[in-house]
Design a protein around this nucleic acid. Structure first.
Ligand SMILES: [Zn+2]
Ligand SMILES: [Zn+2]
Ligand SMILES: [Zn+2]
Ligand SMILES: [Zn+2]
Lengths: 130, 130
DNA sequence: TACATAGTGTTATATTATAACAATTTAAAT
DNA sequence: ATTTAAATTGTTATAATATAACACTATGTA
């Protein structure tokens, strides 16, 4: 059993927004959307995002500078993430494949080193766009 | 045999700089370093970087917004990249593993879709920092 | 209570990246 | 050789992304 993090007000507002979004959200788009709830400055957004990433509630899509809610109960730690990204419609899906995560968690580089943390982004065309 | 790209003056200057650097370089650091050679504006740097990335001479380390020269003859196409990143000293190494690239090139998601393009970033501590 | 840790609100600023436009160079195609 | 298209350049301005610094408040814990 892992520890549940109680989100603060700002964290909850921002998580809810991202969680409801069908697509990854960018920081300033988040800011725009939560201004009516009293979150007025970029830092307030970035601080909440940092924390949410740290506890694994959301992930950052590095190639897009955007954030997506985690729907994969197995990666609460935010340390091993994989996504597929459509290069046309920008749809992003978190990949949850036991085989893939096992392979990557066990991967050793030339020096025999293992890495417990990674981020993988696949690019292609989604079903709709093909 | 693949086509050799003849670099333009700006592209060559910027590639040489990145290629000689022991660590990934950021765009504005590149700009600072090439100003004495007549490249004065960010756009001149970004345009060269875009092209160099496209032809696979350099790669972008997405999580660091930095650029590294490719020393892996097998990924000229810039479509399948993997790196290890030290979270302390920020050393970045391009991973060239036939097994890994084969596994990822053949990976199919839940819908049976394959992806020919991907970027993978491993995080950990390098030998020196452990 | 006292202390430490985390979160907040705010202003200002740093860093990363692109828009828009005019001119020039390069490589092909006729 | 001349025309044409594509790529590159130079330039100014601006957009988008992210952090520094400071004073203050809330929360948990000893
Ligand atoms: Zn996840
Ligand atoms: Zn799509
Ligand atoms: Zn490479
Ligand atoms: Zn290191």
């Amino acid at each position: 059993m892992h520890k549940e993090h109680t989100l603060t007000k700002n964290q909850q507002i921002i998580f809810d927004l991202i969680d409801k979004s069908p697509e990854p959200m960018k920081a300033y788009s988040i800011l725009f959307n939560v201004q009516k709830k009293g979150i007025k400055a970029p830092l307030q957004v970035y601080r909440a995002l940092d924390k949410l990433v740290k506890i694994g509630k959301i992930h950052k899509i590095e190639s897009r500078n955007a954030f997506i809610a985690c729907h994969n109960s197995s990666c609460r730690v935010a340390k091993a993430t994989a996504f597929s990204i459509c290069e046309i419609c920008e749809k992003v899906t978190e990949i949850s494949s036991a085989g893939l995560s096992k392979y990557l968690a066990n991967f050793k580089d030339k020096d025999g080193m293992k890495y417990s943390k990674y981020n993988l982004e696949f690019f292609g065309l989604c079903k709709k766009c093909r």
